[in-house]
């Protein structure tokens, strides 16, 4: 478990990673959810993270977003900010957006309000108390409604949306935050095939300007993303590379197909 099959040590000097995890471990009651994990995400990179249940994908995202503190290891944002010292609100304000596996939107607010609340801006209570909507923001909301194709439903209460619509709304909220890095947990769950492909296209189009980490089970979806894949197993990186290369590795096959 201690081998490090990738290039942390030999990082090229000109590389400017957006996110840098080195030797990160986290145990829960003796169970090592993350074990000496190292991961580098380049600026603008699209990365898929796969792995069986319990591989540590969710804990990894918890650590990046400051929800969980690692026991040991380093988590650096843009080579300077130590993410282990921050909490969820800090990392969000820093530019890390997260989408949950189970779509989580504000069910008692309208679609429009959901997006408005997610828009980048001053998050302090007093700013919120005296907030007045600006024209620029209204335009941005219109734009986002177009992207997630919920324009007709803008005044609907989010709680009444279908599962797929909630997924889209949450993606829209993520975009509204204008993050530098998007952590996307199983975005395709509950979507039709056509919607799945649309989502893949959307994520691909986002990458480049921003970095995106997608955690996914659906191999067709990962294939459609057409990007570098990291395989997690028992809290560490088992393999990294193109999907075809990775899926040919015997150790990956063993993990996925059982002993």
């Amino acid at each position: 478990m201690s081998q490090q099959p990738h290039m942390i040590g030999g990082l090229p000097p000109e590389a400017q990673p957006q996110l840098y995890l080195d030797g990160v471990s986290r145990a829960f009651d003796g169970f090592k959810a993350i074990n000496n994990l190292s991961l580098v995400i380049e600026r603008g990179e699209l990365r898929a993270v796969i792995g069986p249940n319990g591989a540590g994908k969710t804990t990894m995202m918890d650590i990046i977003t400051g929800k969980t503190r690692p026991d040991t290891g380093q988590v650096l944002w843009e080579q300077s900010v130590d993410l282990t010292m921050l909490d969820e609100a800090d990392t969000a304000q820093l530019g890390i957006g997260r989408k949950f596996q189970k779509p989580t939107v504000f069910e008692n607010h309208t679609v429009e309000d959901n997006l408005a609340l997610a828009l980048k801006g001053d998050r302090s209570p007093f700013a919120a108390l005296f907030y007045r909507a600006a024209a620029k923001e209204a335009a941005r909301i219109d734009e986002l409604l177009g992207i997630i194709r919920l324009g007709d439903l803008r005044r609907r209460i989010a709680g009444s949306l279908s599962h797929g619509q909630k997924q889209w709304l949450e993606i829209g909220m993520l975009l509204a935050q204008d993050p530098q890095l998007l952590l996307v947990d199983e975005p395709a769950a509950g979507m039709t095939d056509a919607e799945t492909m649309l989502t893949a296209d959307l994520l691909k189009s986002i990458a480049g300007a921003r970095s995106v980490i997608v955690v996914e089970h659906d191999m067709d979806f990962v294939r459609a993303l057409d990007c570098k894949v990291t395989v997690l197993h028992q809290g560490s990186v088992l393999a990294e590379g193109r999907l075809d290369a990775v899926s040919a590795m015997p150790e990956v096959i063993e993990v996925y197909l059982g002993r």
């Binding site: 829960f28 009651d29 169970f31 959810a33 918890d62 189970k102 989580t104």
Partner: peptide, 8 residues
């Protein structure tokens, strides 16, 4: 009772 369950 510590757990690693994540409440969303």
């Amino acid at each position: 009772v510590k757990g690693r369950a994540v409440e969303a």
